[in-house]
């Protein structure tokens, strides 16, 4: 008998939590993007686990689309980071406070 799906679901939940913790505590925009990738991967793992458990290919198709959107998101996000770095010479999100009220 294979490992139950709950093990993978708990692993994915913990990975999601680690990514979320990094996202709110790290300062560098680059590291924040990496933590975002961790959270996306946690959700992908959940999708694949449910796809196996429910014997439904829709979960794997969803992972496919999540990967495409993640690739697009990283491309545009890193473009923004490069543009900000040109102007401000930093990638720290604390420095970007012009819109503070």
């Amino acid at each position: 008998m294979n490992v139950p799906a709950a093990w993978y679901l708990v692993l994915a939940a913990v990975l999601f939590g680690i990514g979320g913790y990094g996202l709110v505590t790290r300062r560098s925009a680059l590291i924040m993007f990496m933590c975002l990738e961790l959270m996306l991967n946690a959700v992908n793992l959940t999708f694949v686990t449910f796809s196996r458990t429910l014997s439904d290919i829709g979960g794997q198709a969803s992972v496919f689309f999540v990967m495409v959107v993640a690739a697009a998101e990283v491309t545009v996000g890193l473009g923004i980071v490069v543009a900000i770095f040109r102007r401000r010479s930093t990638t720290s999100v604390d420095e970007l406070s012009e819109m503070k009220g």
Binding site: N44, A70, L78
Partner: peptide
């Protein structure tokens, strides 16, 4: 974990797109 759960194609895409392209972009 993908391969262990019958998602062979997604495991290959994971290595190629994520580890191969996105991390290299980073």
């Amino acid at each position: 974990a993908f391969i262990a759960q019958q998602a062979d194609f997604l495991a290959a895409v994971q290595i190629i797109v994520y580890a191969g392209a996105i991390v290299v972009l980073f």
